[in-house]
Structures are given as structure tokens and as C-alpha cells.
Nucleic acid binder design. Structure first.
Lengths: 346, 346
DNA sequence: TTGAAAGCGCTAACAG
DNA sequence: CTGTTAGCGCTTTCAA
């Protein structure tokens, strides 16, 4: 635990600095915050002394006094997921440029933990929260969010009032199907995440409407909705391929699920795209390399994260009473055609 | 900014709760911290009221009063790197279980930013810091760390006093070379990160000593030391392959550099392992899929992160004056043989 | 341009 | 078991 001590053993506080320089502690405070009324000579003296004695401000005292802290809270389901680690990186960068601490919380998609984390986050009276909520957040979580500047990222819960930065997942789903249909596919399966996740339902909707638009039918057993992890993806794919009438192409609407599918393909020595065409979803780095390149619906995550952070910091500059109407951004994904899709064979 | 207001518009503080329940605010404080002296009836009443009125403690006031906060600070060079995102995930999990906020700082390997971030971190009087320092940290950074419980992760700077959780990178380098030598290789190149990074020098040392032990020579032009990013890796590999006498096997001692190499292999349609055998370093998920599987020196990152967090929390339970001598952990990596290495041909 | 003083919300020592 | 009280380090208002 850090207890900043001077040579004499006393903690280095504003008052200690003041005593050292024979000034009032309020003067020290002003000098360090570059207040206009302080002479630059004094400022220099104070800054040097602060550096020499190793003064570090006490953020608690400041929070107590001012009622708010510069902290930005980030709440995500999983930091190892590239979607969230990329927003974390960009936010961390923008925050450090502006001297704002970034507090990271990982809910692991557990609503109870999510609530506890939001509570803990609010104890710091953060300037804003960037959140990706679970599918079924607790009432109290939503209530807490109502009292705070919150920006939703990627997933979007309509009950939260505030800006929402997402991907047009419905368009993404459509893109995948249209690419396959253009190649001549008519037997197109779907593996995605459950519908109570906004992203899950949108991608499924895109898949369905595109099929309909093209006049292509698909039995319900070709649609597998599973939680976003590799094992679930592997099982779903095995089920799909084990059907009497398996699809000849599969749209895997989540990178975590795709990882499971890739493992199955490798273990079972399936040929892609000869046996089955595959379209993934997301930006995982391994998509480049799997089976000579996995065709994917790619998401503009950098842009999204940048947009989120620029909206966030613009909002923070604005006085709290004249906040504009919430922005809802839904960036369009695009398809990257690689080697895992071809005209249907066999 | 969150300003917890009750129905009457007043902020919900301990005192407000006290007035509401006609109790002393110290009683409220004790009830909420589950103090033994408070009757369970009162505790229930207080907890219910706190929940109903949406009370959220002010961490600043607590910090001011107690002099320290439960915060854990995490400082890493890059959160999108799997090594660091995996420790972030594990730490975030352990922290949230214990109700400790985790503050994330990303230095981007810039010593100046690193110093600023450490300063900012210390303003919260964190209970501990988990850090991966830049190659050349500023003096002031090291001075600050001296006053804090700091645990080094992955990289290890001897000037920091405290626990250090790392990988035995020298053994890792040896492992790679021995595998290639066992296959019959005698022309083994090296692409790694600069020597001022502790990890860089150790992996290079492992490479060199293993070559020596096996009586294998290697010209200096087969050793490329580059900053850890894909472009640098790509260039280094092109240089290596463009030599009059290129190596027949390359040990790429960083996952970021390996990504660049993989791109070159793909673009130039090189055959792996027919043209060149490749051994990578690290645990990137795409290693599974590149060229039918990239042979790699795999790191026990989960174990390392778990060890770091268990040492951290054990240390935090211990009274500050009886801290034990610093632990230095160096876990052994292991090799995963896949399809990118074979006996030399041609 | 600087100083004096009040008070933010909480914890803990002491009193009852 | 509960109440009273002091004070943590800082910002800010008012005064000089």
C-alpha cells in the first residue's frame, strides 16, 4: 500500500508541501491545478517541490470534495474476446491521454455479478460508463444505469437510456446469406447465439429475411442457437453435419462458436469448402489462416470503438444539463471473401 | 455523472439513511459493513433501506478516511495481446469476487506514458499494482513502484523490488532449437524482440546456448531483433529468406512477429515446412490453424496469471510489516509439435 | 497574488 | 447494542 512519505516520515500531502514552502495549502492546490491567479514563479517552485518530494494527489479527497471523479468505467462480458479487448485498448488510450483512469469490470455474462460490478463502479462516482450488458440484466442494474451517463457498446438494451454504439447485425446476417446464395447455395444452415442477446436475434433475423428474399427455404433444424463458446459451437456443428439432410453451407454468427466449428473441421478432417462452405462472423485473427482463409462478415470494430470514445468525450465536455438526444449508431459490416466458400458441389 | 438522489432530491448518503431510519450514521456504517455489534434486526432494516433508496457508498470518502483503497492497478503494454488480456481476465475475475476494483492502464510500451499512468494509479492509493514495464522505465516510475506493493508479470526488471512472475524464456528458446536440431536442422535462424526487453534477451540466450550445446553454428545475419509488431516481423522474415544462404528453419520468438511472418508466407505462397520449418512462440489461437498447425513454444499463461493473483491476494491478507522475501517464479514453457516443422529437405 | 476557513462522506475511537 | 465526535486531504468561497 502506497503511503507517500517524505524523508522525515510524514506523508506528503498538500499541507506538507505548503509547510515545506511556507505557503498556504490552498496556494499549493491552485498552483498544481495551474490556476490563473498564481504567479508563474510560485507555480515553478511548487511544481519542483512536488516532484522532488514525490507528491501524489489523493484522489479520494478530491472526489469527496468535488462529488465526482474523472473515472471511466468499462463493463464487458469477456476481455479476451477481440471485440471487447479492442474497445478496451482504444478507450484505455483515449483515457490515458486525458488523464482519466479506466476501471475494467468483467461480468462473464452473469447478471448477478454484473449488478455487483455496476454498484462497485458507481462507488467511484464515475464520469461515465461504457457497458455491454448481459442478455437479462437485473432491475437494479438498469436503475443504476439510469442515474449515470452510460454508453452501450455492441449489444444494445432498449431499457437503457443513452447512446448506443452497435453493429447492424441484421445487415451482417443478410450479407452472409446473400454471398452464399450468389454462389448458388440453397441449403444454408445457421449457428448463432440465443435470441435474448440483441446481437443474436438481429443476426438470425438477417439470415431469415435474406433467405426469404431469395426464396430459399430452410428447415428449423438447420438453426442452432447456442451460448457463445467454442464447445457449444463444436457440438452444434456436429449436430448439423449429422443430420439426414445436412446443409451444404453454414453461417456461423459468432467468432467463439466459429472456433469450435474450426476444431471439428480439423479433427474430423472435413474438407472446406468441398464438403461444406463456411461463413464466419467477426474479426478474429485466425480467420485469415483457417483452411486457407475463412470467409467472414467483418465488423468495423475500430471505427465503432473510436466512435464510442469520441461521443463519450464530447458528451463529457458538454454541461450535464444540455445533453443531446441519444445517438444510436449501427455501423454496417462488410464481407471478406476468402477460401472457405465456393459453389455447392457433390 | 452519478449523483444519487432520493425522491426528495437530496443525495443518498449515510447520514441521509440515518435520518430516514432515525439512527446514528455510525450505526448505518457498521450495519452495512456487517459489524458484529449490530443487531441483526437493525442490519436488516438498514440493508433494506439502503437498497430501497439506492444508496451507493462514496469510495472517495472511505479512501480519505482509511488512507488506502481496495483498488488493484494493472499496467500492461498492450491489452489486445493475449498474454496480457488473459492475465487481465483472471485478475478481473479474482478482483470482482473480492469486491476489488481493477484499474487498467495501457502503456503502449511508452516510458513517458508509463510514468504518467503509474502516477495516476497511485492517486487512488491502490492496494497493489501488477505491472509489465517497458524496456527502459523512467527513474521516477521505479521510485514510485518502490513505495508500493508491486508484482511484475512476464517481463522482469531487476530494479523493482517485489515478486516477479515470469516464464523461463531461456528454456523456451532452447526448446525451440532442440526440437529443430532433433529433426536434423543445422541452419536455424532467429527472429525476436530487442535485448533490452528481459524476455527478448532470454529467448535469444536460449537459442544461442542450445545451438552451442549441439555444436551448430549460425551467422549473425540469421538473427533479427525487431520490435514486437507484425510489420517488423514480415520485414525481418523477408530479409532472412532473401539472403544468399538463408536458414532452412526459423524460430520466431514472439507471437506478434509470427503474425507478420505468417502473412509473408501466405502472400508469397511459400510452402511450410517444405521451404522452411517454422517454430513460433506463445499461445495465439491462430497458431492452431496456420499451415495446418504452427509448431510453437507454448506458455503456461493461465497458470502464471493464477499464480500471480494468488500470490497477490495472499500478500494482501498479510500485515504490511511482515511481508516475506520476494518470490521469483519462472514457469517452464513446453513445445507443441504441429505441422510447420519437419526434417530439412531440398 | 495569496491566505484562512469550511466542509464534502465516511470510519473508528470513545462513551454510554 | 447504539450514539457522539473528530478528522482524513482536498477544493473553493470569501477576505485581504
Amino acid at each position: 500500500m502506497a503511503v507517500f512519505k517524505g524523508g522525515n516520515g510524514a506523508p506528503v500531502t498538500l499541507k506538507a508541501l505548503a509547510a515545506h514552502l511556507d505557503l498556504a495549502h490552498s496556494t499549493i492546490s491552485r498552483a498544481l491545478s495551474d490556476n490563473v491567479h498564481i504567479s508563474s514563479a510560485t507555480k515553478d517552485r511548487v511544481r519542483r517541490a512536488a516532484r522532488d518530494l514525490g507528491y501524489v494527489a489523493n484522489s479520494g479527497a478530491r472526489l469527496l470534495r468535488t462529488g465526482h471523479s474523472p473515472v471511466i468505467g468499462l463493463l464487458v462480458p469477456d476481455i479476451t474476446n477481440e471485440s471487447y479487448s479492442s474497445v478496451a485498448r482504444i478507450l484505455a488510450e483515449e483515457c490515458s491521454e486525458r488523464g482519466r483512469p479506466l476501471v475494467l469490470s468483467v461480468s462473464e455474462d452473469d447478471p448477478q455479478r454484473e449488478l455487483e460490478l455496476v454498484q462497485a463502479l458507481l462507488e467511484a462516482r464515475p464520469a461515465a460508463l461504457v457497458v455491454t450488458l448481459t442478455a437479462n440484466p437485473k432491475k437494479a442494474t438498469l436503475a443504476h444505469l439510469r442515474g449515470t451517463l452510460a454508453i452501450q457498446f455492441l449489444r444494445s438494451d432498449p431499457r437503457v437510456h443513452g447512446h448506443s454504439m452497435a453493429i447492424d447485425d441484421c445487415a451482417g446476417g443478410r450479407l452472409a446469406v446473400e454471398h452464399l446464395a450468389d454462389l448458388g447455395h440453397t441449403k444454408i444452415g445457421f449457428i448463432g447465439v440465443p435470441e435474448n442477446l440483441s446481437t443474436g436475434s438481429a443476426r438470425l433475423r438477417g439470415y431469415r429475411t435474406a433467405l426469404q428474399d431469395r426464396g430459399i427455404g430452410a428447415p428449423l433444424e438447420w438453426q442452432k442457437l447456442r451460448p457463445p463458446n467454442a464447445d457449444a459451437g463444436a457440438r452444434a456443428f456436429r449436430e448439423l453435419m449429422g443430420l439426414k439432410k445436412p446443409p451444404k453451407a453454414v453461417f456461423i454468427a459468432s467468432p467463439q462458436l466459429a472456433l469450435g466449428v474450426a476444431r471439428v473441421v480439423q479433427e474430423d478432417k472435413m474438407r472446406v469448402p468441398a464438403d461444406v462452405s463456411l461463413v464466419a462472423y467477426g474479426n478474429s485473427s485466425w480467420f485469415n489462416f483457417f483452411a486457407g482463409g475463412l470467409t467472414t462478415v467483418s465488423l468495423p470494430l475500430q471505427e465503432l470503438a473510436t466512435a464510442a470514445s469520441s461521443i463519450l468525450f464530447r458528451e463529457l465536455k458538454r454541461p450535464a444539463d444540455e445533453r443531446v438526444a441519444p445517438t444510436t449508431l449501427a455501423l454496417a459490416p462488410f464481407i471478406i471473401k476468402r477460401a472457405s466458400t465456393s459453389r455447392p458441389r457433390g
